[in-house]
Amino acid sequence: MKQVAQKVNAMVFLEFEEPLKNLYNQLDKIKDVASAGDVDVSIMERELMQKIKDKRKEIYSSLTGWQKVQVSRHPERPYTLYYIEQMCNKFIELHGDRYFADDKAIVGGIADLDGETVMIIGHQKGVNIKMRQYRNFGMANPEGYRKALRLMKTAERFGFPIVTLIDTPGAFPGLEAEERGQAEAIARNLIEMAQLKVPIVCVVIGEGASGGAIGIGLGDRVYMLENTWYSVISPESCSSILWRSWDYKEQAAEALKLTADDMYEFGLIDGIIKEPVGGAHSAPEVMARALRRHLKKVLTELTQFSAEQLVQQRIEKYVNMGEFNVGTVR
């Protein structure tokens, strides 16, 4: 775990990770003492490492909805291009929607995943301040969704399975986005993805906010990483609208039931992919390996179905989503 080697002040701690921060501070102090004199601190160091490990496990075993939202937004969390780089032997990024522009918030391309060509598409957030702006914080414009659809159509033509990685705080609410038809772009993707004749596997790897997420998220199988969220609105926006204040995000996160566990219980996703203790960012390589194994398994399972079966089952799956009463007044 590369973070252990880091100095504590270079690490990013979430507010509920405060106890961990304290332990890491102690660790730093011990190391300083050791380097100042010739004191052997290896035993204390080992003990402290064990403590950190236990504490991390304890904290991460009972995260609230809002805390998971925070983990999903951790600045060191791995993003789409990282997973592609780790999981695939070859990757050629493909750019542009062929109409207007190349959106930097959605990336995609053909890749070799364990000896099979797949089309991988995903939201992309930036890894530093400059890149976050370049990627528009993972908020795509219409051309992003249209690029995604173009790549999916290419995949369909050549019989490549499609993998989409979802990680967005929402589709970009901008003036030009409206001019160029943000709503139409998302709607078009939904109706087209419904009938694609190749397997589609979607994984929420970070934030799954609303239309911006589902715009590349309609598939035969949809999974969520353990510490991610997926809902119709972000907890902050929900708080501002329903509580008329930004201060109720924790309550909103609970009320929306937006965690992977909730979504799986509702039957709205097909499974949860475990994250390393401490979140995907604490051991990104481990996370990428787990994701690759999972994708490989699911894609193999899906090859047993014909194109017609895939489309039929996909449609049935979404038609069954919804909770209502019949014939009674609640």
Partner: peptide
């Protein structure tokens, strides 16, 4: 979408689109 039905209402976007297809 209706916030009080959270992800269920989000999925209605997909549901109506697959039916329209």
């Amino acid at each position: 979408a209706r916030m009080m039905e959270a992800a269920f209402s989000l999925m209605q976007m997909a549901k109506t689109a697959v039916k329209l297809s």
